[in-house]
Amino acid sequence: MIPWLNKIRENVMVKKQVLALFDDAAKAADANEAVMKEGVKPGDIEIMTGCPYPEGAFGEHDKPHRVYRFPFIGALLGFSMAMLITAGTQLSWPLITGGKPILSLPPMVIIAYEGTLLGAVLFTIVGVLFESRLPRVGLGLYDDRITEGYIGLLLNVTEDNDFAIKKLLQKHGAQELKEEG
């Protein structure tokens, strides 16, 4: 089989989203494991919780991200900007004060240090928001009870497995099933 053709086929087959609500984390974890065994791919499952659980607690797969690159880029930009400003402003009218050279490295380093960290912080925040896909307009299939302690299991289901998956979710203690699409 041709892999890319397969992928297109899978995407076309996505019919709708189902949100299962659980009042207990253990039930949600069991349900997650069961739907994965049933053939639902990790990329088609989202677990929504009201508080952070340790990574992998629900048996979910790790998703890649590039957050660590952002602070480095920010730091580099911040440092360059600060050096440019400190050097540029002093060179624009060279005036010796306190017996120190016009381009005094230690004071420049102080401002560059702040600039570097400011850049790194700003870019980290941009990176975290970007990788979290925030801001997001509209919540999609969601339930307010998630922030009250319910666990939401959001699944992309196809026509083929729709019925079986819903049954499986109910079997594992889903309190409510919501559908979209």
């Binding site: 919780t49 659980y53 979910e60 912080v121 990788e131 925030l134």
Partner: peptide
């Protein structure tokens, strides 16, 4: 900002906490 509390969002939120702490 449209927060839904997905695993990935929480993971990045925790990471932000550590990264920003280390930077601040």
């Amino acid at each position: 900002l449209g927060w839904r509390g997905t695993s990935q969002q929480w993971k990045l939120q925790m990471m932000a906490g550590v990264l920003l702490s280390a930077l601040i």
